[in-house]
């Protein structure tokens, strides 16, 4: 366990060692504010809740989760430090889980940085804070799924830009597979059963229902199993690239 904790600590510190972390959090908070107050029409709705935020948060995550994930493996590969990491006495899965965990904690910090929105809505009215808490939970868990998929994409390449684009593409399909627009496109390209399976694996429906205050075991199972699946893919990619 100490090996895993050491890597989480190093990875998390690596985000904050450069201005990237601060830029990321600042942009995230600014965009969350813009979407909530401007685009989401917060003041004219006359409702004390954060629905405008949670309406746009999945699409924000679509860009931000790949941005957090892209460096996780591509940077190690570009620098050659992956050779050091994988010759230390730890299993590949430990490195994969530790890196993901660091990114997930970082994403959590980014979400927490939007506390101003939560304060504002409580100051202006009497929102259902339980629903808001569920919304944040849904965002963090959905972010975890996207991050795991993004980390697997990052392990495919030494180029962080390619890692970002690949991760964003995978995350987009994961997020929106159930929307009519994407279903139509997928239906034309893939056999019906595969398009339906992708729709069933869509992250958006789980996010939306939980953000509206309805959480079920199926949602939790979805987040946990999807994250585990992509972490497993990540391990396979690392092992495969090592052999290639």
């Amino acid at each position: 366990m100490s090996a895993l904790a050491a890597i989480v600590r190093r990875e998390l510190a690596a985000y904050f060692a450069t201005p990237i972390a601060y830029v990321f959090i600042a942009v995230f908070v600014a965009l969350a504010g813009v979407f909530t107050f401007q685009v989401g029409n917060f003041f004219n709705r006359g409702m004390a809740d954060l629905m405008p935020l949670f309406l746009y948060l999945p699409w924000l995550l679509l860009v931000l989760a790949p941005a957090v994930a892209m460096r996780l493996w591509a940077e190690e590969r570009a620098r050659g430090t992956i050779e050091l990491l994988l010759t230390l006495p730890l299993a590949t899965w430990q490195a994969v889980v530790a890196k993901w965990l660091a990114g997930w904690l970082f994403l959590g910090i980014g979400l927490m940085a939007t506390w101003g929105l939560w304060i504002t809505v409580n100051w202006l009215g009497e929102p259902d804070n339980g629903v808001i808490a569920l919304g944040y939970l849904a965002a963090w868990m959905t972010g975890g799924v996207l991050l795991a998929a993004g980390a697997a994409a990052s392990a495919l390449t030494r180029n962080q830009v390619i890692a970002f684009v690949l991760a964003a593409a995978i995350c987009f399909v994961l997020m929106s597979a159930a929307t009519p627009l994407v279903q139509e496109a997928l239906g034309a390209l893939l056999p019906a059963w595969l398009a339906e399976a992708l729709a069933a694996a869509s992250a958006l429906s789980h996010f939306s229902s939980v953000a509206q205050g309805v959480i079920s075991a199926a949602d939790v199972l979805y987040w946990v199993s999807m994250t585990a699946f992509w972490l497993f893919v990540n391990v396979l990619v690392v092992e495969w690239k090592k052999a290639a």
Binding site: S2, A3, A5, A6, I7, R9, R10, A13, A14, A17, T18, R79, G80, T81, E83, L84, T87, L88, P89, L90
Partner: peptide, 28 residues
């Protein structure tokens, strides 16, 4: 095992102490 890969790749953003402490912690 102790291993020095070709070209001695390192994490540039870490301090000397921080990096060695990291390696030590991973090694238990």
């Amino acid at each position: 095992l102790g291993y020095l890969p070709e070209g001695a790749p390192l994490h540039d953003e870490m301090t000397v102490r921080g990096f060695l402490a990291f390696c030590g912690r991973v090694r238990g």
